[in-house]
Amino acid sequence: MCHLSPQALRFYHAEGLLVPADVDERTGYRSYAFEQVERAMIVTLLRDTGMSVKLVRQSLDEPDRAAALLASHDAELRRQRAAQDEAIRAARALSVAQPQPRQRHRPATTVVARMVHGTPLGRDAREWETAEAAIAAASDDLVRLLEEAGITRLGRPWRALALESPEQDRRVLDGEGPFWIVKVAVAATAAALTALPAGTDVQEHPAYDEMSIFMPGRHTMAQYCTTILRLLDAQPLDDDRFVNVARLRQEIHEDGVLSSAPVEPRPQ
Score class of each variant (00 low, 15 high):
M1E: 15
P6L: 04
Q7I: 08
L17T: 08
P20D: 06
E25I: 00
A40C: 02
M41Y: 05
I42K: 14
I42W: 14
L46F: 10
T49R: 06
G50K: 13
K54M: 08
L60I: 04
P63M: 09
D64A: 14
Q80M: 10
Q80T: 03
A87I: 05
R89C: 01
R89A: 01
V96I: 13
V96A: 02
P99G: 05
Q100I: 09
R102V: 02
H105I: 11
A108R: 14
T110P: 08
V116T: 07
L121C: 07
G122R: 10
A131M: 09
I135D: 14
E147M: 05
E148M: 15
A149I: 09
L163K: 13
V172F: 05
P178W: 09
F179V: 03
A185M: 03
V186F: 13
V186M: 09
A188M: 00
V202L: 08
Q203S: 03
Q203F: 11
D209C: 00
D209F: 03
R218A: 10
R218K: 13
T220G: 12
Q223W: 10
C225I: 15
I228A: 10
L232A: 12
D233C: 11
V243Y: 11
H253V: 08
V257D: 00
L258C: 03
P262F: 07
P265I: 10
Q268Y: 11
